[in-house]
Simulated assay, not measured.
Amino acid sequence: MSLSRMVPAGKAAPRLVVVSARSAHHAHSAAPAASTRPEELDNPNFFQKISLRFQGIPLKGETAPPKSMFDDCGKEWSAPQPLPPVPADFKEHPDRDLTNFPYPSRPMYAPKTRMLMIPDSWLTPFHKVTGTSGPYLFVGGLAAFLVNKELWVFEEQGHMTVGWILFYLLISRTVGFRLDQWLYGEYQNRMGFFKNLIEEDLKEAKEFRKNSALESDSLVAVKEAFPTIFKENMVLQLEATYRKNVQTVATEMKRRLDYLKETEETKRRFERDVMLKFISEGVEAQAADPKFKEQYINDAISQLKGLSPSQI
C-alpha cells in the first residue's frame, strides 16, 4: 500500500525529506531550504523523488499525479451493478411451487469468512454464549487440542503453510483488485457475446412473428372477400372456357372448309384432265381416219362458198 494511506483522514500528510549524509552537517545552516516542500524543488534528489512517487505527489512541472503499482493495494473490488434477480412470476412449468420451493438467489459476492476460510455463519452463534472472542478461542483451542493429541500431525514441512498464507495475502492485497476488475470485464464481454447471439435468434423469431401476423391479416382479408373472389373467379373461368370453345369451333370450321375447298379443286382438276384426255384421244382417232379428212375439207370449202363477199 502507498505511504499516503497511512495518514489519518482530515489531517495534512507529512512531507518526508531525505537529506544525503554528505550534506547532513549543513542541516542547521540551510534552514530556509528545509521549509521548501519537495514537490516544489526544481531538481529533487533520488530519495525525494521516491518519496513523492510513493505519496502520489507530482513533481514540479508535472500536470498529473504519478501512477504507482501500489495505488490499488488494499482496495476491495465491487461490481458496478448487481446481478438481475429472477422475475417473480417466472415459472419453467405451471406446476412449479414457488411458495415452498422458491428459486435460490445468486449471491453477488462470496459469503463472509473469518480467518480467511471459516464461514461467518459458523462463528456467529457463539456470540450469544461466549461473546465476541468465543469463536476464536474455540477454533484456537480445537487446533491446539488436535496438535497436542497428534490428531493433526504438524510435520517439519508444516511451516510452508504459513508461507502460502502470507503469499496469498500479498497477492490478494496487491493485484487482487485489478485481477477482479479484469475478470469482471472479461465476464461482461463474454456475456455480451452470448447476449448478441440471443438477440440474433430473437431477431429471426421477431421477423417470423411479424410475417406470421401479416399473413394472418391477409388470410382474414381473403376470408372476408372470398365470396366476391369466388364469383369473379367463376366469371373468369366461364369466360376462358367460352373463348376456348370459340377458338375450337373456329379452328374446326376452318379445317373443314379447307378440306371442302381442296376436295372441289381436286374434283375439277380430275374432270379437266379426263376431259382433255378424252378430247385429245377423240381428235387423234378422227385425224387418223381418211374419210374424216375429206369430209373436213369439204365442209370447209362449203363454208367458204357460203360466205358473202362482204365477209371475205
Rank of each mutant, 00 (worst) to 15 (best):
K223Y: 03
P65R: 08
S310F: 07
F90M: 01
L219M: 10
V17F: 09
S29G: 10
D217Q: 11
M6S: 12
P44R: 00
F47S: 14
E232G: 00
T251I: 00
S308L: 11
V129I: 01
R268M: 11
V18L: 14
M275V: 08
H159R: 06
G141V: 04
K254F: 02
F126M: 08
D201Y: 14
F226T: 08
N196M: 04
V222L: 10
R256K: 14
K49Q: 08
V86T: 12
T248R: 13
I312S: 13
E284V: 06
A30I: 05
V17W: 05
G176Y: 06
S310T: 07
P44A: 07
I171C: 12
R255I: 02
I312Y: 12
Q48L: 13
T130P: 06
P44N: 01
P111T: 02
G61S: 02
G74M: 01
Y184E: 01
A143E: 07
H28R: 13
D217N: 07
D97S: 00
K128E: 06
D120I: 06
S216A: 11
P227V: 04
F230Q: 13
N298C: 10
L137C: 01
S2T: 12
L307H: 10
F138N: 04
Q181R: 09
L307S: 08
Q303L: 12
Q303S: 15
Q48T: 02
V7P: 02
G282A: 15
H28K: 15
E62F: 04
G282S: 14
A21Y: 09
L202H: 14
A287E: 14
N43M: 07
G56Q: 00
P8W: 03
V19H: 03
G140S: 11
D299S: 15
K206E: 12
Y168L: 11
A21C: 07
T266E: 00
Y168E: 12
S51W: 11
A144L: 09
N43D: 15
T99A: 14
P87R: 14
A205Y: 05
T263H: 08
L151P: 00
N148C: 09
